[in-house]
Nucleic acid binder design. Sequence first.
RNA 1: GCGCCUGUAGCCUAAUGGACAAGGCAUCUGACUUCGGAUCAGAAGAUUACAGGUUCGACUCCUGUCAGGCGCGCCA
Length: 574
Amino acid sequence: MITTLEQFLSAWMQDAFCKALPGVDADWSTVAVVATTSAEFGDYQCNHAMGLAKTLKKAPRQIAEAVISQVSPHDAVEKVTLAGPGFINITIKSVWLAGQVTGLGLDARMGVPQVGQGKTVILDYSSPNVAKPMHIGHIRSTVIGNALDRMHRFLGYRVLSDNHLGDWGTQFGIMIMGYRHFADPKILDTEPVEELERVYVKSYERSKQDEAWLQQARQELVKLQAGDPENRKLWQQFVELSLSEFDHIYKRLDVKFDLIRGESFYNDRLAGVVQSLTEKGIVRESDGATVAFLDDEKLPPCIVKKSDGGFNYATTDLATIQSRVEEFHPDKIIYVTDERQQNHFKQVFAVARKMGCTTKLEHVWFGLMRLPEGTFSTRQGNVIKLEKYLDEAESRALAVVKETSPGMPEEHQRNIARAAGIGGVKYADLSQNPQSLVTFTWEKALALDGNSAPYLQYAYARIASVQDKYRDQFPATKLEDFPILLGEPIERVLAIMILRFPETVMRAAESYKPSVLADYLYELSSAYSTFYQNVPFLKAPEGLRESRVNLCVVVARILRQGLNLLGIETPDRI
RNA sequence: GCGCCUGUAGCCUAAUGGACAAGGCAUCUGACUUCGGAUCAGAAGAUUACAGGUUCGACUCCUGUCAGGCGCGCCA
């Protein structure tokens, strides 16, 4: 079993606590180390002694001292010191560190353990509505969900990514009416989803003024849901048109789903779910509707069957859980949606648990995106289409490429612009806490300098270039024959950061925060840039030269793997 | 009215209850005729919305206030 440096040091400290405080009844597994905030305090610190002071009625420094006296010697540890009110600071031996970095560089997984072996996770993300173009609001669920998807896979989980399309709502009655009366076949050919949205909006407005129109739309919906062949065919067409357009965007974003099952997929189960809820006494009638009242009084009651006999969103989600559990036996189902659905999922999860569902259900929500002047709304016409957003990102990146690499063939320029532009868009969403409210500005979303995707890609490309130059200049030397030496302070900083990769990936996945990984990769690139700019390597004497190039190679591998986990490309030239 | 979330330099963002709050943008200084300047070295910029409380220690936890966002039984 591979353990991370942090896990290893924590276990090592637990042992010392146990020995230093015999007879104390405590759960030593909570003893942990964390990376220090500053190099002057060593590499890792343990703060546990201070927390114990009160219960043990001893001075924290005294406890820490006792612990330090009980640590068992280890090759990895240079020294353990007491500082401040009771911090235990640990400094790692550089020789050991160098060996670990070499080993990690040779490991295909870069030290990341497969903690998810044998476990199945279903990731429900993106989930756009059929017959509406994807807009800028869809990017967060797609990008965050996909990063969680990639990280879980890398950690050894069996992941099933599922795009739970909104393909079965009440909007289809209005949709069908709009299509029949307003659709322009020519536009439908070139811009199908745009056209579908246009006729939907037109039909929707008509329905608000024209009672007969609305009645007719309801009729069409009933016919559709009863399996009327003609309406069914129309619906099928809407779904196919939308899917092919979504596909185009998913290709640009390099997002793939294992399953694309819309709400319609679970249609046959809805009545059964309500029946089973009724039999179990979880629901009762209220104002003509069938409703589950939940134990948590702060949660509104959950309607599973409307007074008109129809089912709704909650019913579908319950049926979806049921179906997924039966078919895939997941250990966990993770939903990635915006913050507005928090209550909805709390309700659904509560009802599912009452039904006996033991699968872990997680709702990962993120803050809404808005404009400086207010929210996006179709009515105000300020919605930014996703396609346009990606185009803009690529064209801004292309302008930078043309300026920095004017001699490069056009095709290469475009490839780099795509990697930097799309990478920049993803990084903008992944590098910050997903739960914060985001105010959209082009300038912010498409920044290409400072803490941005191109900064990380640039660091990677420079290493690729160093490797090429090294091979040209020293074609006969075998890099593998040379050990990594850690002489300069910045080399040591890099080495420690490299060893933190495994624990960072695990923390990012466990907390559902890709930003943890993005932050780490930025810090690694930043440390690398300092190294690159201030320490010679190709010009260094033999031995030192190989050591430094080897260090570069390990950094490059981590950047490549780490950015891949975020869904960001790493071109060799940028 | 009730519930959930957010509030950190001019702007954008970090910080599993730990050491002097960390970066980026913008501003100002510098970087060898250089292993790639989408970079690096440095300067300046903070009463962490406000008031209490818990703690050896609070941006972080609790209470209250203010400001903003979102949600509150048949939309998804």
